[in-house]
């Protein structure tokens, strides 16, 4: 069965009981990285061959050609091995596309794994254009080509990951919900982490949505939160659905009272 995009991640449970998952790269991204690598190998070989022809080749054409042949073999076979070992699982193509080779159990990549996965490329490339490897990668649950399966490696996607900046969506302004602390506490109790996170994500990504979609999503979410806890009318009067959500998110993700930073013109007004 074809692994769906959702299944393309590698779950790992640490001995401490913490579960994390690594997003796996699919055949298309990996193919593009390989194309970049092929260009690098070709360029490196061409440049080095020119150097040899214009140095050793002048003294002895035969030895110059011999060196060029050895160099081409060495670079084409050793490129992936040398870079993946030196750059911790990355070639230039993988680095450009944000991919990294990793051990399939999340452990450190061993030299033998790097060598083996690169050697077995000989079969993955068959009968041409990476067809065997591409098919294996497409059908494999862990998006592994044959070399990866034999070496026990996976290729993961590295994302530019940074901790979210909550001040971007939750400026410390007056929140009318906090005027009724018992209701705010009940809201925190009743809202599930998943619901709170959906609301937070909506606020973080509000500018990526068109107006109609944003208003509709805000309306839907605000309505579901209104059903959980009924705040007094003076706390909700004049609040748009989006403002309502901001107050909910503020209550959920900021435990301490934010009235230190009250702003009369803030979200709750």
């Amino acid at each position: 069965m074809i692994a769906s995009a959702r299944e393309r991640s590698l779950p790992i449970r640490t001995p401490e009981g913490v579960l994390f998952s690594l997003p796996l790269a699919g055949p298309v991204t990996r193919g593009l990285a390989w194309l970049i690598d092929v260009c690098c190998i070709t360029a490196a070989c061409a440049a080095l061959t020119q150097v040899i022809v214009h140095t050793v080749g002048l003294l002895s054409p035969s030895i110059g050609t011999a060196l060029a042949v050895l160099l081409y073999s060495g670079v084409s076979i050793g490129y992936g091995m040398a870079l993946e070992w030196r750059l911790r699982g990355q070639t230039l193509g993988k680095r450009l596309l944000g991919l990294r080779v990793m051990d399939e159990e999340g452990l450190k990549l061993q030299p033998s794994q790097v060598v083996l996965r690169n050697l077995l490329r000989a079969v993955d490339l068959l009968p041409g254009l990476y067809l065997v490897g591409g098919a294996a990668c497409f059908f494999s649950r862990r998006a592994q080509r044959l070399g990866d399966i034999a070496a026990g490696t996976v290729v993961v996607l590295l994302k530019g990951i940074e901790a979210p900046d909550l001040d971007q969506v939750l400026p410390r302004k007056y929140n009318s919900f906090r005027d009724t602390p018992h209701l705010a506490a009940r809201l925190r109790q009743k809202v599930s982490p998943r619901e709170a996170s959906i609301a937070l994500q909506l606020l973080l990504r509000r500018d990526e949505l068109d107006d109609a979609a944003r208003l509709r999503l805000c309306s839907l979410l605000a309505e579901s939160f209104r059903r959980l806890v009924a705040f007094p009318e003076e706390a909700t009067a004049g609040l748009t659905d989006e403002q309502y959500l901001r107050n909910v998110v503020d209550v959920c993700f900021r435990a301490r009272d934010a009235r230190d930073g009250q702003n009369p013109g803030g979200v709750g007004q």
């Binding site: 640490t14 913490v18 994390f20 998952s21 994302k159 901790a163 979210p164 982490p193 709170a196 973080l204």
Partner: peptide
């Protein structure tokens, strides 16, 4: 306690 995906992804990458 939260399902905050960005923070979770950030910490997952560090732990991994």
């Amino acid at each position: 306690f939260t399902a905050e995906p960005e923070l979770r992804a950030y910490l997952e990458s560090l732990v991994a």
